[in-house]
């Protein structure tokens, strides 16, 4: 069982390269900035990376099966806003508020998935449309200004510590382990790879293509909602627009992690490295006197570069 995982990861050069890149980038940045490698800063980096990493988990599943989810920004934002509104600053309602918010995330994913696989709506249009609908809905619901603060238990989840390790990192590690198990050893995982490689062949092999597609979008809705919950805990409150950066960063993390944007290859362990790289990059920019404008340009270049590299060796036949 272990050898299967090792074989997949070791045979996937992009994943190894991504980790080497993350380490290299971290060491370089540490050389420029004295406090960067400190214990506190490493903890901070891990926590910041987890938000991208968790959104990219669902995004990775969707991309692996050959789709894309552009509705993550407002799914995340909606989860954050609704959780703070439901809980209204106290911990008691969390017992039902967290499951409810995650279920709503799943519902968004379900709508996306059904629209795409059953009604045949183009994934870009479906999810981009969903993003706009959610944004409008939340603006109507909150009247443009969400207020309540994040409950202390959610803050603990995002910023607390167990010994030297942030609680948040433990949560992320658990999710990564779960994703790894699903991708490597389950039937669903194999179906995902089959679906992303060739949809027609997968269909003829008896895979319930529609159902698998829907499930990937549901997973993506849940992880985006979960990242939203954690992010409100981190920032202490929910605000409009907090999800916007995750559109590019989640796709970029998946792309850097070695997943083909056409689906069919890649692994969540690579995406983790992608999230780490993007976070270290974001930390490197202020040191180089660059701002978030540069970060957006870098996101774009990174997506283009990695996708081009991944496509160059075995040029795809006419797939458009």
């Amino acid at each position: 069982m272990r050898s299967e995982l090792l074989r997949r990861v070791l045979s996937n050069r992009p994943i190894l390269l991504a980790y080497a890149g993350a380490l290299g980038l971290f060491l370089t940045t540490s050389a420029f900035s004295t406090g960067f490698a400190s214990e506190n800063n490493v903890r901070l980096l891990l926590v910041q990376a987890s938000f991208i990493g968790i959104v990219a988990l669902g995004q990775g599943f969707v991309i692996l099966a050959g789709g894309i989810d552009l509705s993550v920004p407002w799914t995340l934002n909606g989860a954050a806003i609704l959780l703070t509104l439901f809980a209204n600053g106290s911990n008691a309602p969390l017992a039902w508020a967290i499951p409810l918010v995650l279920a709503l995330g799943a519902l968004v994913g379900l709508a996306n998935g059904l629209g795409i696989s059953v009604l045949g709506v183009n994934p870009i249009v479906m999810t981009l449309g969903m993003n706009v609908i959610l944004a409008g809905g939340l603006l109507v619901y909150t009247n443009g200004s969400p207020t309540a603060a994040a409950p202390s238990h959610v803050e603990y989840l995002a910023t607390g510590r167990l010994g030297p390790v942030p609680v948040n990192t433990l949560v992320w590690a658990a999710l990564a382990a779960l994703a790894t198990i699903v991708l490597t050893w389950t039937i669903f995982g194999r179906q995902l790879y089959a679906l992303g490689t060739n949809r027609t062949v997968a269909l003829f092999s008896g895979i319930a293509v529609g159902r698998v597609t829907v499930i990937t979008y549901v997973i993506c809705g849940i992880t985006a909602a979960f990242a939203g919950i954690l992010l409100t805990g981190y920032t202490g409150q929910a605000y409009l627009g907090m999800g916007d950066p995750f559109l590019f960063s989640s796709v970029a993390a998946v792309a850097i992690g070695g997943a083909s944007i056409l689906g069919g290859s890649g692994h969540y362990l690579g995406t983790v490295a992608g999230a780490l790289i993007l976070t270290v990059l974001a930390g490197l920019l202020p040191i180089l006197n660059l701002n978030t404008a540069a970060l957006q340009i870098i996101y774009g270049l990174v997506i283009l570069g990695t996708v081009a590299l991944a496509t160059l060796p075995g040029r795809q036949a006419v797939t458009r």
Binding site: I261, N291, A293, I297, Y299, I303, L304, V307, R320
Partner: peptide, 21 residues
């Protein structure tokens, strides 16, 4: 031979960054 949506997603990010700059 890259997918149109991924190319233009990336250049959307690049030009937005340039606009902020």
């Amino acid at each position: 031979r890259l997918q149109p949506f991924i190319v233009t997603l990336a250049t959307w990010s690049i030009w937005s960054g340039a606009a902020f700059w």
